[in-house]
Design a binder for these strands. Structure first.
Lengths: 139, 139
DNA sequence: CCCTCAAACTTTGCATTGTAGAGTGATCGG
DNA sequence: CCGATCACTCTACAATGCAAAGTTTGAGGG
């Protein structure tokens, strides 16, 4: 970390790991699971297995695996009909799941905002060489 | 409203995967690489290896690997100083890299907007059981 | 009443990928 | 002139996503 106890003048402490977005949770930051969570967000009553499969364009095994991960993280509840006509699985967000997912989305939004602010230069780039300095070769 | 009974006006008959966010590219949708790309976005002149390492809170090998992936995808350019006092590596976004990354961010924004629209229910959830139906047991 | 089909998951194996620690070769201080 | 340090690079391992095959249960036909 700050092994070199250099004075921190000139720049705020943001000089350290300004882009370490710790709020981006691995469990939720994943195409497939992101899909699932968003689908569930709009369905407070939950969704059935085949329904989710269709919505998110996932294979059976794939969906099963991702649901297991989400369940392990207590982001979703899984209910199975025992007395029903056929085996059915219903999935819905837990309360903490909903809260955590919304927090994740907020963090994502912050990241995007950061990026947008930082990217005003539309065509300011140099040709092909790094400016000024000579002796640079492409890798 | 039933998800299944959607009108077939606005979408092709396939009604494929409302939540299949195809625009989310695996290469960019990754905590570490996302950090790197955002850092580079704000530095059109590029960034040095140790600088990036600090900014994104990554280890040497980790950063090296992610840079290789990004370079493989032609999202970044890598320059090495040959005549310099010490070996230095400078990294900067390519033009297509910048464009693709901005497109990715736009897609992300769309996803978030979708989620936000779908998540109006603040406290409407049932206690612990799935509403109405009996015979459901937790998994 | 039995046989076959299909739906709804579950399990298993493979391939990809992220992570960290060891290794390499310059450069700089003493 | 010799170690220490910096700046990467390489390699091995562990985790994870993905898809194909297997299993169980209900429905339908002869």
């Amino acid at each position: 970390m700050s092994a070199k106890h250099e004075r921190k003048v000139g720049k705020p402490a943001t000089a350290k790991a300004a882009h370490d977005y710790a709020g981006i949770d691995r469990v939720m930051h994943e195409k497939a699971r992101l899909s699932i969570l968003i689908a569930l967000l709009s369905r407070p009553q939950g969704a059935l297995f085949p329904e989710l499969k269709e919505l998110c364009a996932l294979t059976d095994g794939n969906l099963n695996r991702h649901l297991a991960v989400l369940h392990e993280a207590t982001l979703i509840e899984v209910w199975k009909s025992q007395a029903g006509p056929r085996s059915k699985t219903r999935v819905q967000l837990t309360e903490v799941g909903r809260r955590q997912f919304l927090a994740y989305l907020a963090e994502l939004e912050r990241v995007i905002r950061d990026a947008r602010v930082d990217a005003p230069a539309p065509e300011r780039r140099r040709r092909n060489s790094v400016g000024g300095d000579a002796g640079w070769v492409p890798a």
